[in-house]
């Protein structure tokens, strides 16, 4: 498959992810409204931002114009050049961060300490900025949220594991760019993984009912 056609395939996968995210958002928003639990609304907003990021990534990458002027590249020109080809991904990465933070915060805002004599404590995962790489930050937030949710609540379901594994893998893959390994398939593949994450979440959740 040619690199350009794979870029379009990844955009289609991302748009499928957007559609699934919107369905999940609508369900969670309705649930939050009827039971009056704001933490569910935070999770719904997290999924909505994830869907918007996927749409931005899909449209940004698919509408790439060959005549797009190349800026002065400065440091790490090869990596920057590779990422300019996928500028939709670059634009959307901060939105993924926002989405993961919203999803993580929703778990802690909505948690109730059920030990007698104690009161609810809100604990937010600490975000340590060790390296200016939005993928690494996203991965750190995802890992912290998943780990603390399992420590706190004690289990992970299949749809949950599928969603977080696909999202995590999509941010892990672009680490290859930092090692100097540049290839056309890396960023579109990470887009496909991110697009599949909400599709899997919705499909497996529906199957488990």
């Amino acid at each position: 498959m040619l690199p350009s056609s794979f870029l379009y395939v990844s955009s289609v996968a991302a748009l499928a992810g957007t559609a699934s995210s919107l369905v999940i958002f609508a369900r969670l928003r309705e649930t939050s409204r009827v039971i009056g639990d704001e933490s569910v609304m935070l999770a719904a907003l997290g999924i909505l931002v994830f869907g918007v990021a996927l749409a931005l990534e899909a449209v940004g990458n698919a509408l790439l114009h060959p005549a797009f002027p190349q800026p002065f590249l400065g440091k790490r020109p090869a990596q920057v050049t590779a990422l300019i080809v996928n500028r939709g991904t670059l634009l959307s990465l901060p939105l993924y961060m926002v989405s993961y933070v919203l999803m993580a915060v929703s778990q802690y805002v909505g948690s109730v300490d059920v030990r007698p004599g104690r009161h609810a404590a809100v604990v937010l995962p600490a975000i340590l900025l060790v390296y200016v790489d939005i993928n690494m930050l996203s991965l750190a937030v995802l890992a912290a949220a998943s780990y603390m949710a399992i420590v706190k609540y004690g289990r992970a379901s299949l749809p949950s594991a599928a969603f977080y594994t696909a999202s995590g893998a999509s941010h892990l893959l672009p680490f290859l760019l930092n090692t100097g390994y540049l290839d056309w398939w890396i960023v579109p593949t990470s887009t496909v993984l991110r697009g599949l994450a909400p599709v899997l979440l919705l499909a497996l959740s529906t199957r488990e009912k």
Binding site: V34, A104, S157
Partner: peptide
């Protein structure tokens, strides 16, 4: 009753997003 029905439809989704 209506709220419970809506909640039941979202149970798996909420569990998947980390809610217990």
């Amino acid at each position: 009753r209506r709220a419970l029905k809506i909640l039941e439809e979202s149970v798996v989704l909420l569990k998947s997003l980390g809610f217990r």
